[in-house]
Write a protein that binds this DNA or RNA. Structure first.
Lengths: 247, 247
DNA sequence: AACACAGTTTCATAGAGTGAAACGAGGGAC
DNA sequence: GTCCCTCGTTTCACTCTATGAAACTGTGTT
C-alpha cells in the first residue's frame, strides 16, 4: 500500500495478467478478468498490449490466450556465465547417480523459493521436479535450509509475510532452524507433500554467502528418516564441492 | 499507429524495458532510459513495478538491474504436453548423431523466427545454437523454408515488414522460394553468418499445416554445397517422421 | 573542494487509462 | 427456426493516473 505510488498500476495489472499463465496455459478473456478482478475491457487492452509485444499469443482454433515466444527468448537470455544452474549441473547429476534419487537446486526469491535446476531420478517411482517451480519458504527441507542459514533480516521478513502459515508455532520452528545450523543439513518427511521426503544442505560461495539449497527428494517409503540421515553426509559433501565451483 | 489506441502505453513501455534484457543481462537505470528513449523517472517507476512482481531484480553489489526468477517460472510453465520442442527432441538427437552436426528447430513468430529447440554437435568445431534466439525471417535456410511453405498472407506480411532488408531483390527471392517448394528443402551458405552453412526442411503436422523448420547447421568448410545436398534426403526423412509425432 | 554522474523523489498538469454500457458474434437449448 | 446466454470487441465521458521537468541525494572522480 505504501510503495504503490512508486509503481505503475497499469503495468502491475498487466504483469498480474501475465502471471495467470503459471499453472494453466490456456485462458479466455473473461476468465482472466475474473481471476485478476478487473473489467473485461481493461483486461482486453492489457492483453492486446502483451500480444503486441509477443508475450502472449492467441491459439488459432480455440481463441484462447497462451504464452508467446518472447517468454522463451527472455528466459534463455537470463542465464549468465557461471550461473549456478548450469555450473552445478554436472555435480547434481553425479549426486543423483550416487543416491539414485531426484536432485533439486533451490534459491530464495524474497519470501519464496524457486527450483532453478533439477535432475530426475531414473527409478520407476521418482520425484518429478519441474524447473522454475515456486514454492513456499515455510515448509520443506530446502525451505528450512534457506532460512536457517539466512541473515536475521531475511528470517523476520519471511515470518512477517502474510503467506506464512499461522498454524506453525514460531518457537518450535526457530528451535528447528537452530538444530539445522548445528547439524548442517535439514530433512522433511511428508511435510509439504504427502508421500514425499527430502534432505537438503546449504551451498555457500567462496565468500561464505548462502546462495542455494541442494536437495535430494523421493518417495517417503524409500527416504525413511534413517536413510536420509545416512545420505546427509554425502549431500553436505556435494554441497561443499559445489560451493567451490561458484564465484 | 492504428492499434495504439487498443493498447496501454505504460504497459508497452514496461515490456520494452523488459526486452532490453535480451542480449545484455546487466543494465543501469539511465542506460535503459537512454535505450528505450524515456525519461529516467519514468523508467524508474516502470522498473519498480517490474521489480515488485519479481520480473527484475537488482544485483546486490553493483546496483544494476537484471532479470528476475519470475521469467524462469513463466517459461517453464510455457511448455505444454505434446509441445514440439520436447516431443521432437529425441528425433533431433538421432539426426545429430547421424550427421554429426548441430540440429535446430525453428518456428515462425510473426515476421521473425525463433529457435525453440537445439542439440549441439559434439565435434570440436561446431555451431552453437542457443534456444530462444530470435532471428530475421529473411535470410538463413530455415527462414526460407518457413516462408516458402507458408500461406501467401504470411509471405506478403513478411516482405512488407520494415525490418525486411531492402537489398534483397524480391523477384529473385520469390523464385528461390519456388525452388524450395519443388525440392522440399533449403540451403544457406554463409548467408546470415560468415563461416556458417545450413540445410533446412519443413515439418508439417498431420493436418498438413507447417509448424516448424528443421535445420542442420555447421561450419561452411564442412557443410559444403555437395555435402548439404547429400544430407538433404536424411533431413527431409527426419522431418517427415517428426511431423507424424505431432498432433 | 568542486564536479560529474547515477539513482531517487516531488509535483503540477495533461491526457491516458478506466469501466459502464452498448454492440456483435457464435453456440446451445428447446 | 427463435430465444437466450456468454464471450469478445468497441465506444465514450470522466477521473485519476502516468508523465517528465526539476530538485534532491549520494557516490566516486578529478
Amino acid at each position: 500500500m505504501e510503495d504503490d505510488k512508486r509503481t505503475v498500476r497499469a503495468v502491475g495489472r498487466a504483469l498480474d495478467v501475465l502471471l495467470c499463465f503459471t499453472g494453466k496455459s490456456d485462458w479466455g478473456l473473461s476468465e482472466i478478468a475474473n481471476q485478476v478482478g478487473l473489467h473485461k475491457s481493461t483486461v482486453h487492452r492489457l492483453l492486446a498490449t502483451l500480444e503486441d509485444r509477443g508475450f502472449v499469443i492467441r491459439d488459432e482454433g480455440t481463441e484462447k490466450y497462451r504464452l508467446g515466444l518472447r517468454v522463451l527468448e527472455l528466459s534463455s537470455s537470463q542465464s549468465r556465465p557461471n550461473d549456478p544452474s548450469v555450473v552445478l549441473l554436472p555435480e547434481m547429476e553425479r549426486l543423483r547417480d550416487q543416491l539414485g534419487e531426484t536432485v533439486s537446486l533451490y534459491v530464495r526469491d524474497r519470501t519464496e523459493r524457486v527450483r532453478i535446476q533439477a535432475v530426475q531420478s531414473e527409478q520407476a517411482i521418482r520425484r518429478v521436479a519441474p524447473v522454475g517451480a515456486r514454492l513456499p519458504l515455510s515448509v520443506g527441507a530446502s525451505s528450512k535450509v534457506l532460512l536457517a542459514f539466512a541473515e536475521p533480516s531475511v528470517q523476520s521478513a519471511a515470518l512477517a509475510d502474510p503467506a506464512w502459515p499461522q498454524t506453525l508455532d514460531k518457537e518450535t520452528y526457530a528451535r528447528q532452524l537452530d538444530d539445522i545450523v548445528d547439524s548442517g543439513y535439514s530433512t522433511s518427511f511428508e511435510e509439504r507433500e504427502p508421500g514425499a521426503a527430502a534432505v537438503a544442505a546449504p551451498i555457500f560461495n567462496r565468500a561464505g554467502k548462502l546462495v542455494a539449497a541442494l536437495a535430494v527428494s523421493g518417495p517417503s517409503n524409500r527416504l525413511t528418516p534413517e536413510v536420509m540421515h545416512n545420505q546427509a553426509a554425502f549431500i553436505m559433501e556435494a554441497a561443499r564441492r559445489m560451493g567451490a565451483l561458484l564465484g
